[in-house]
């Protein structure tokens, strides 16, 4: 049997006094398309970062306490070859003033370093990937001058360029227009069909989750629900998830899987 794409056991993260994730248990099979939904501050981004081995945050915010286990394709996150995992961070994360072209951002994903000079081969590969996500025209545009939706496409191309087996997307549809969103899901589904990759996507758009995801994970510090979209995205479980923000302890742990 192949290892689960993502597995967590009694996994908790605590930033100082603040419990961001509490005793999360989950096992996501390889090849799944999982939408993660939950209110703001539910620990969704924290969960993705844990899968990247970045759960500790920066030392600036004080001590972080982590307990429980995480496995990504059977390995502790920091042992997973970086090429196996693609990541699109939440929009607010990056510095727009950095002088860079869209193409360089994609090549940086390929090299895992910042390119001083881009080789012809790298250029070809990066352009092909930009083309795939419908962003070839952006290749030599400046990063700081891209719109939110254009930026998301560039980051998507960046995350796909090493053909990862696990794709972690933190609100990739934020700021993307209707056509762009449809494009995004088309690219993701095509990529998944082609490579059998696992996709974990944080989203606030339940309708999209309903239509495109094979499973939905409802998170509010704890796992509130997990299962096929039509089961999990029912009114009652969502009011459970969203009705008690700030009182994570009162939540009933969703038992479905």
């Amino acid at each position: 049997m192949t290892a689960a794409a993502v597995e967590m056991q009694q996994y908790s993260v605590r930033f100082g006094e603040f419990q961001a994730l509490q005793e999360v248990n989950l096992s996501l099979p390889q090849g799944a398309f999982v939408a993660i939904v939950g209110p703001n501050g539910a620990g969704k981004s924290t969960l993705l970062k844990a899968l990247l081995g970045l759960e500790r945050g920066s030392l600036r915010d004080g001590p972080t306490q982590v307990s429980g286990t995480v496995r990504v394709m059977g390995l502790p996150p920091r042992k997973v070859p970086p090429g196996w995992v693609g990541y699109v961070p939440q929009v607010k994360g990056f510095d727009r003033s950095f002088p860079a072209l869209a193409l360089e951002v994609v090549v940086s994903g390929l090299r895992r370093r910042w390119p001083f000079i881009i080789t012809a081969q790298e250029r070809k590969k990066a352009e092909a990937m930009l083309d795939k996500v419908g962003a070839l025209a952006l290749a030599s545009r400046r990063l700081g001058r891209l719109s939110g939706g254009e930026l998301q496409r560039v980051y998507l191309a960046r995350s796909l360029i090493r053909e990862p087996r696990l794709l972690l997307l933190d609100e990739p549809a934020t700021g993307v227009d209707v056509v762009g969103e449809a494009d995004l899901y088309r690219h993701l589904e095509a990529y998944q069909a082609e490579r059998g990759a696992t996709v974990l996507m944080i989203t606030h758009d339940w309708e999209a989750a309903q239509h495109h995801a094979s499973a939905v994970l409802v998170l509010n510090r704890r796992v509130v629900g997990y299962g096929p979209p039509e089961q999990v995205l029912c009114h009652e479980c969502l009011s459970q998830a969203f009705g008690h923000v700030g009182h994570g302890h009162n939540l009933v742990l969703g038992g479905r899987s």
Partner: peptide, 20 residues
């Protein structure tokens, strides 16, 4: 090292995610 400094200057989190 320029490439590493530049990468972390661009986006520290991505550089960390790539085990820099």
């Amino acid at each position: 090292v320029w490439s590493h400094w530049a990468y972390a200057t661009f986006d520290r989190e991505l550089a960390l995610a790539d085990r820099q």
